Simulated assay, not measured.
Amino acid sequence: MSASPESFSLRQIALPAFGPSLLFGMGEGAIFPVLALSARELGASSAGAGLIVALVGIGSLLANLPAAALATRYGERRAMVGAAAVSLLGLALCLLAPNPWIFGAGVLMIGVSSAVFLLARQAFLIEAVPLHMRARAMSTLGGVMRIGLFIGPFAGAAFIHLMGLQGAYWLSVLAMLGAGAVSLAIPDLEPRAAPGAAATPPPLSMKAMMRRHARVLLTLGVATALVSALRACRQIVIPLWADHIGLDAATTALVYGLMGGVDMLLFYPAGKVMDQHGRLWVALPCMLVMGLSLLAMPWTTGFVSLLAVCIVLGFGNGIGSGIIMTIGADASPREGRTVFLGLWRQITDLGGSGGPLLLSGLTAVASLATGITAIGGIGLVAAWMFWRWLPRGRVVR
């Protein structure tokens, strides 16, 4: 699978690199819209159904550091196959669950498998792709996952029409089987050794890795956690503000879909800009555009103005496709890389979990507009942090 850096093309590894991610994203996208409905059918309250949906993120958060240990010990390919198997077991529990407790356990396993799969996929690409194409690879990975998450609900709707609510889970089963099969067929990767490199030293422990790389984790790591917070809040504020200004569910879905379409179109150009000009050329405008869009959202009063703001918001998010993974890959050391990436994902996932909590708290004590404005301000803070600590120019090692 290796090729000289000068002759390398992403097409050479398109199927093994991005095929499993597309299928995995499609499998998750198929079930995400129906998790709450399934929980309600099993007797969960509205609050309980919300908690069960949140178990996807909780499972991912709990699994980041163990995922790093698994990928380090067994390799990225085996970790991806194992993640697909765990996801299949979780889906089986969801299909057979007699009560919300068993169903919740299955959802938690799906969240755990997602963390293992994504970390192993990122580590695999870091080794497989030359440095001068790293950002394009990471942005394509992020874009492919988004495409899968976008296709999943539509394909799931067709299965639901034929089989009922369980059809979404059966589609996810097929997608996860495909992701596992493609991952299993990938040959083991031989890391590109630097000329004259010495034997690989023993991997660092989590504690030693945190101590050695504390500065980058507390600067760029925190900045990317703020990116994750903005993205998580974006999913929440659009339907809430649309409802606040009187838009119905169908109109809100149209706004969200158009925004997602703009988002998906930009992942490869964004990666190319990062590779050719440097990460700051994308990270800074991404945060400025998203932050200013959220600051403008409370001033919208109807469909047209909200759609315009959301299109700009989708543009900002789209040009930032893969930015968290790319910066994490750049910062990661060769020795103990998966351990570092596990810590990196833990920090960014904490941002993704903390952002909605902050939004909820500010909305409760002040107003929805205040909460949205504060989240927009976080985007400007992240932009300043990138300006302060993200290296200028192209990454060269």
Rank of each mutant, 00 (worst) to 15 (best):
R78H: 13
A85S: 14
A382R: 06
G106K: 03
P5M: 00
L65A: 01
A175E: 12
L230C: 07
R345T: 01
L218F: 12
A366Y: 14
D275S: 02
G82Q: 12
V312C: 13
A194E: 15
S205H: 03
M264E: 07
F150Y: 01
V237G: 03
H161I: 00
T219M: 10
L23F: 15
T348M: 10
A3I: 04
M1Q: 08
A193Y: 01
G104F: 09
E6W: 07
P66H: 00
V86E: 01
A54M: 08
L42K: 11
I327W: 04
A232V: 02
A85K: 08
G371K: 02
M163E: 12
L341S: 05
M325G: 02
W170M: 12
A214P: 01
G271W: 01
F267M: 11
L93C: 14
L292T: 14
V309D: 12
V395Q: 12
G320D: 04
G27V: 06
P202H: 10
A296R: 06
K207W: 12
G318W: 00
Q166K: 14
A197M: 08
M385A: 14
A242S: 15
R279N: 04
A331E: 14
V262M: 07
L254K: 08
L258S: 03
F154P: 00
A85W: 08
L288Y: 06
A181Y: 12
L131Y: 07
V262G: 03
T338N: 14
L89A: 15
T373V: 14
A308K: 12
L88T: 03
W170G: 03
N317H: 06
R136E: 11
L93I: 09
I378N: 01
I186C: 11
T140K: 12
L368T: 11
G351C: 02
H277G: 10
D349S: 11
W389Y: 15
G82W: 14
A135C: 05
G393P: 04
L61D: 13
M325D: 11
G178P: 04
C286K: 02
L149N: 06
L42Y: 07
H213A: 13
F24C: 10
P20T: 12
A67P: 02
L265M: 14
I147P: 01
I378P: 02
A157I: 01
I372S: 08
M325F: 13
P66S: 02
P20V: 10
V107S: 13
F159A: 15
A135W: 05
G314F: 07
S87D: 09
S367V: 13
M287K: 00
G43P: 07
V86D: 06
L35I: 15
S7C: 07
R345A: 08
P333S: 10
E127M: 09
L350T: 12
E41H: 15
G257R: 04
S113M: 03
I347F: 04
T200E: 15
P20G: 12
G355Q: 09
L10D: 02
S7W: 08
A97L: 09
M109Y: 05
G143R: 05
L171W: 03
L171V: 04
G164D: 09
A214T: 11
I31M: 10
V173G: 03
G196H: 02
M163R: 13
G143N: 06
R134M: 07
E28H: 13
L295P: 10
D330P: 05
L10E: 01
G393T: 05
R136N: 01
P98N: 03
V182F: 09
G246K: 05
